[in-house]
Amino acid sequence: MNFNASRNVGQTGGIRKAKRVSDVAAMGAPSPTPAFSPTPAYNPGFQPAGPPPPYHEGIQLDNSQDFGGPPPQAANFGYMGGFPQSPIPPAQLGSMLHQPIVQDMALQYGNQLAAQGREVVQREISKYVPVSRMRYYFAVDTRYVLRKLLLIMFPYTHKEWMVKYDQDLPVQPRYDINAPDLYIPSMGYVTYVLLAGFMLGLQHRFSPEQIGMQASSALAYIIFEMIMYLVTLYVTNTSTHLKTLDLLSFSGYKYIIMIASLMAGLMLGKTGYYCSLVYTSFALSYFLVKTLRLQLLAGPPAPDQSSYAYGASPYGAGSPYGGGWQAGGAAAGGTKRRVYFLLFVAVTQPLLSWWLTYHLVPSAALPAPLPAPAR
């Protein structure tokens, strides 16, 4: 059945009441319902037409966001997005660098970098060189150096040879004249090389190669000497409280008698050299025997402490100075080996001193230089 709207108009021109159509199929096919999309495309610039979908209820939507805008550009870490990216003028940059707060920040950052670099260097050096232990051997002052030089040259009047300890740790050399140090041996080595070059120059035998030969030979001999002492202790199975740096210190004291003998030979010739060498050799041997016997005869260090540690007391259970003398053939044999090693050290020091200096002494005392002629 078709619907005709014109049939509602009467003959008199009035509007007739519309009739209800009971046949829905006669009205035609209904318009299709649009499919539901979970992500509706919002038209930028317009508000949503209706309330949000059921699954969006309770979620606040930001209607001001532009979801249809262009994609963001590449990140620029120099400037914040959304602001004009204009470079800072050089004048403004210079004024910023002169700000006190900027300078303080730069200073703190530089100090941190320097501290980190210093820690790395110290850590790498400490792997090969015992820096923390060597600080002890260079803790000296002028008074200690003068007293130690007099003790090496005139040791016969000295009575107290025991090394002082403070809470199981040895006292620094500046507070104890009996403590070993490395300052006097190192300065003695440099002085010996310079004095050798001076004496060779007075004899017209100086050359740069001679200075290098003197320095390298003196260094090679002291290294050979240290190796010889350590091998002797290892082969004879002798355990002592002496450390490697202690042996190096006592071996370096021979440069004092070498310098004294060369000075005597420079002024008095061969006779003065040999007289000075004999006296200083006896003085050095006496000094070494008195100093080393307490540490050599003290026996091996404690089991829980290394031979390089400073916590070991110089008087062990097997020491005659500690009150706990051990009886038995092993203890007696160990004591004999320590005594032999002590005599070995006391004898080799004068011999090496003579070997390193005899070829530098002139046959006669050098005459004083003539004054320059007057013009």
Rank of each mutant, 00 (worst) to 15 (best):
Y183W: 14
V171E: 05
L195R: 04
K164I: 04
Q172H: 01
G188A: 09
S186Q: 03
I184C: 01
Y175Q: 09
M187C: 11
T157C: 06
Y192D: 02
L182I: 10
P185Q: 06
I177M: 08
V190Y: 13
D168I: 01
V190A: 15
G188K: 02
K159M: 07
Y183A: 15
T191F: 05
M187Q: 08
Y183I: 10
H158K: 14
A196H: 05
I177S: 03
D168G: 05
P185D: 04
Y175V: 00
V190W: 15
Q167L: 11
L195F: 12
P185R: 10
F198A: 10
S186V: 15
A196W: 06
L194N: 04
G188C: 04
K164N: 12
L182S: 06
M187V: 15
Y165S: 00
Y189H: 14
L169F: 12
Y165Q: 10
W161R: 02
A196C: 13
A196R: 02
V193E: 02
W161D: 06
L182H: 06
I184R: 05
Y183M: 13
A179Y: 06
Q167W: 01
P173T: 04
Y183R: 02
S186W: 09
I184H: 03
M162S: 04
N178E: 11
F198V: 10
D181K: 11
D181Y: 08
P173S: 11
P173I: 05
L182D: 04
P170H: 09
Q167R: 12
P180N: 09
G197V: 02
I184W: 09
Y189W: 15
Q172C: 00
Y183K: 03
Y156K: 05
Y165P: 00
L195V: 04
P185M: 05
D181N: 14
V163K: 10
P170W: 14
V163M: 14
L195W: 07
L182E: 04
Y192I: 03
Y175C: 01
L194Y: 09
V171C: 08
L194T: 03
Y189L: 15
D181T: 08
D166Q: 12
D168C: 08
